[in-house]
Amino acid sequence: MSDHHAPGAAAAQEEHEEHEHPSWKQYKWVALILLVITVVEVWVYYTPFAKSPYFNPFLITMSAVKFGIVVQMYMHLKYDHKLFRALFFGPLLIAMFTVTALLFLFHQLPPLF
């Protein structure tokens, strides 16, 4: 039942070959970037900036960047079939919409109106 080399998958395989998975070199850099962002996040937590109204948006942006990097590089979504992107980002969008709407409904977001 090893069905990963389907007959006639030539076209798909070609595409696969084109976008080789990123190499060790890239992985290393990805790990370093993730590490640096995390260190900055924790460091900022202990600085006076933590009291600023921009603190939360800053942290959310940083974690979104980390999220994106892991998904695109480690989960190789950037290099994979577009179908997988649809299968992930579609549900993710609906999930994020739901979180936002719920926070709005429970008055946990800064007022919009």
Binding site: S2, A9, A10
Partner: peptide, 19 residues
């Protein structure tokens, strides 16, 4: 190519996306 691929593997499953 597909034909050859089929001859060399014993149990191959066709999938419409190749995934």
């Amino acid at each position: 190519e597909a034909h050859e691929a089929h001859d060399t593997h014993e149990h191959v499953h066709y999938t419409s996306t190749g995934l």
